[in-house]
Amino acid sequence: MAGFQTAARLHGFGAAPSAQVHVIVPAGSGVPKIQGVAAHEAVLPVSTVVEISGVPCAPAARSAVDLARVLRRMDALPLLDLSLRAGACSRDELLAEVALHARLRGVRQARRLTELADPRAECRQESQLRLLLIDGGLPAPEPQLWVPDQDGVHIYRLDLGYREQRVGVEYDGRSHLDPDRLHHDRSRLNWLAANGWRMRHFTATDLYRRPQHILATLRPLLLAP
Score class of each variant (00 low, 15 high):
Ala19Tyr: 12
Arg188Ser: 02
Val50Met: 10
Asp185Ser: 04
Asp75Phe: 08
Ala204Met: 04
Ala76Gly: 07
Thr203Ser: 12
Glu97Arg: 01
Tyr162His: 08
Asp81Tyr: 09
Leu192Gly: 12
His101Gln: 13
Gly36Glu: 11
Leu218His: 01
Pro119Ser: 12
Gly14Cys: 06
Leu116Ile: 05
Val31Lys: 15
Ala8Val: 05
Asp151Glu: 13
Asp206Leu: 10
Leu71Arg: 05
Gly173Tyr: 01
Ala68Pro: 00
Pro119Phe: 02
Ser47Phe: 05
Ile52Ser: 01
Thr205Val: 10
Leu10Ser: 08
Ala42Ser: 14
Pro59Phe: 06
Leu71His: 10
Asp185Gln: 11
Ala194Tyr: 04
Leu189Gln: 14
Arg157Gly: 02
Ser47Tyr: 07
Glu51Asn: 13
His184Phe: 05
Arg157Asp: 01
Val25Leu: 08
Glu115Lys: 05
Ala110Glu: 03
Ala2Leu: 15
Arg85Leu: 07
Cys123Ile: 03
Gln144Met: 08
Ile214Trp: 03
Arg85Met: 07
Arg200Asn: 03
Asp180Trp: 00
Arg112Val: 13
Phe13Gly: 14
Pro59Ile: 09
Glu41Arg: 12
Gly168Val: 06
Arg198Glu: 13
Ala27Ile: 01
Ser127Gly: 06
Leu182Ser: 10
Ala2Tyr: 15
Leu189Ala: 15
Cys57Tyr: 02
Leu189Trp: 04
Cys123Asp: 12
Asp159Ala: 07
Leu44Trp: 07
Leu189His: 14
Val70Leu: 12
Leu132His: 13
Arg174Ile: 09
Ala121His: 10
Ala204Tyr: 10
Leu82Gly: 04
Ala86Leu: 06
His11Cys: 08
Leu218Met: 00
Glu164His: 05
Gly136Cys: 10
Gly136Tyr: 14
Glu142Tyr: 01
Ser127Ile: 13
Arg124Asn: 04
Val21Asn: 01
Leu132Pro: 14
Ile155Cys: 11
His101Phe: 15
Val167Phe: 00
Arg112Thr: 13
Thr48Trp: 05
Asp92Arg: 13
Ile155Phe: 02
Leu222Pro: 01
Pro139His: 03
Pro56Phe: 08
Gln144Phe: 00
Val43Gly: 10
Pro56Gly: 08
Pro141Trp: 01
Arg91Leu: 14
Ala99Asp: 15
Ala102Met: 06
Val37Pro: 14
Ala216Lys: 15
Pro17Ser: 08
Ala7Glu: 03
Arg108Leu: 14
Pro26Ala: 10
Val153Thr: 11
Ala86Asp: 11
Glu122Lys: 11
Ser175Leu: 12
Gln125Val: 10
Arg181Gly: 03
Ala39Glu: 08
Gly152Met: 09
Val147Tyr: 05
Leu77Asp: 08
Arg166Ala: 09
His176Val: 04
Leu95Met: 11
Leu177Met: 11
Arg69Tyr: 04
Ser187Tyr: 02
Pro211Gly: 15
